[in-house]
Design a binder for these strands. Structure first.
Lengths: 216, 216
DNA sequence: TAGATTGTTAATCGATTAACAATC
DNA sequence: TAGATTGTTAATCGATTAACAATC
C-alpha cells in the first residue's frame, strides 16, 4: 500500500475548499495575482489560521508578506478535488429536480458532465433536456459499462432509489450522488454522497426555534 | 439569560436526527412500539453508542432490554427540530430548482410550507406552481411583514442572491435557506443555511479520485 | 529595517468511541 | 435468573485555535 506521501485531508477542510475555489477564481478574473489568508478569511467571516491550515493541505506554499499565488491555488484545489479529471455522470429520474440538474450550467466548472439521463416513464423517453436525451432506464447498465461512467445521480422518488442504485452498481458505477431520501444499501467500495433536504432544513429550523436563545 | 436547562446539541447530532426520524416514522407505521439503538445503528451502518448519545440529547429515556418508545422519540425529535412549529417560507426565484422545491410534497412532514413564491420576471408573475401563485419580487418585504414569515428560500442566480437576501432581512425574515452559491452578507442575527452543490460534489469526486487509495 | 504574513508546533476544544455499572 | 440494553463516565481521536519563530 504505497501511501508514502499520501495525506489524509480532514472532511471539514474538503468541504471548504470548493468555496475558497470559487472566490479565488473570482479575484483571479479581476486581475489579482496573490492573496493572503487574511483576505480569504474576511470574505467568509472565518479565521485566517484555519484558512492557512486548509490551504496547506493543498501543498501550495505561500510567501511571507505576499501571500499565495492565486493561480497555483486554483490549480491545486481543482486537481485535489478531482475536477481536472473527466467526471461523466448518468442522471436517473427526470422529475423537477432532475430537470434542474440537467440544465445546471455551472457543472462544467467542476469538470462534471451529465452525459445521459434516464427515466422509467415511456412518455419522457426521447425528450431532450439541457441538450441531453432521455433514455429508458433499462439501458443504464449496458451504457454505463460501454462509456465507463463513474458517477450516477439519483433523482428518483425514495421508493425506487434502491433499485436504481443497484442498476448503477451493475453498470460499474463507483460513485453515487443521491438526492433521494432513501438509505442506499450498496457494496462498501461504492462512494455515496447524500444530499438531504431534510437535514439541511433541520439545521435551519432548529437554529430558528430551539436554539435561538443562543443569539442573546 | 435563562439557560438553566438549555442543552447545546452538537451539530453532527442535529444532522443525524432527521435521518433517524424518517426511519422511526417508517417502523412506527409498520406497527413497532419500541426500538433499540442497535436496530437503528444497523439500519444506518453506524454505531449503537453514537445512536444512544444522539437520542439522549432529545431527552427521551429508554428502558433496558426494551429500548425506546418509538412514538416518544418521534415527538421529541420533531419538537426539538422545530417541526411542530408553523414554518412558513417565501421562495424567491422560480427557475428549475425553485419549481422543484415548490412541487416538493414532503415538506409538509417537516411542518414546512412555502406560502408564496416570487420572481423578477414579469412573464412568470401570476403563474401558479404547486398551488402557489408567483408574485413580483418587489412585494416581498411588505408581505413578509404582514404574514410574519420567518424563512426565505433563495433559488435565484448568484448574481442577484445578495439583493434578495437584503429584501428578506428588510421583510423581517430571520432564517435564509440559500440554494445559490453566493456568500450572503447579512446581520449576524440572521440564520443562514447553505445548500452548496459544489461542496457536495467535491466530497464525492475527491473521494472517487484522490482518496480512492484509502479503499485498498 | 519594520512589520505583515507565512509555516509549524502546542494547547484547547469538542465529538466519537470504549468501558462498565445499573436495570429490566 | 441471565443477558441484552440502557445511561454515564472516561479515554481517544481529530479539528480548531493559539502562540511564535522564520521570512520576505
Amino acid at each position: 500500500m504505497n501511501n508514502k506521501d499520501y495525506i489524509k485531508i480532514p472532511e471539514p477542510t474538503l468541504r471548504r475548499l470548493p468555496v475558497y475555489l470559487k472566490f479565488l477564481k473570482h479575484v483571479h478574473t479581476e486581475g489579482a495575482a496573490h492573496i493572503s489568508c487574511t483576505d480569504i478569511a474576511r470574505e467568509f467571516q472565518s479565521d485566517p489560521t484555519q484558512v492557512r491550515k486548509d490551504l496547506a493541505s493543498t501543498g501550495v506554499v505561500g510567501t511571507a508578506r505576499i501571500g499565495f499565488d492565486i493561480k497555483a491555488l486554483i490549480d491545486a484545489i481543482e486537481i485535489f478535488l478531482g475536477w481536472r479529471n473527466k467526471n461523466e455522470a448518468f442522471l436517473v429520474g427526470v422529475g423537477n429536480l432532475g430537470r434542474a440538474l440537467l440544465e445546471y450550467k455551472q457543472f462544467q466548472e467542476y469538470g462534471f458532465t451529465i452525459v445521459a439521463a434516464f427515466d422509467a416513464d415511456p412518455a419522457k423517453i426521447g425528450q431532450c433536456i439541457g441538450g441531453t436525451e432521455i433514455l429508458p432506464v433499462e439501458r443504464l447498465e449496458a451504457l454505463a459499462w460501454r462509456m465507463h461512467i463513474q458517477i450516477g445521480i439519483i433523482t428518483v422518488p425514495a421508493s425506487s432509489a434502491q433499485a436504481v442504485a443497484e442498476r448503477c452498481v451493475q453498470g460499474g458505477i463507483t460513485g453515487i450522488w443521491n438526492f433521494s431520501p432513501a438509505v442506499l444499501k450498496v457494496p462498501r467500495t461504492i462512494v455515496i454522497e447524500y444530499v438531504l433536504l431534510s437535514t439541511s432544513l433541520a439545521v435551519l429550523t432548529s437554529k430558528l426555534h430551539g436554539q435561538q436563545k443562543e443569539a442573546l
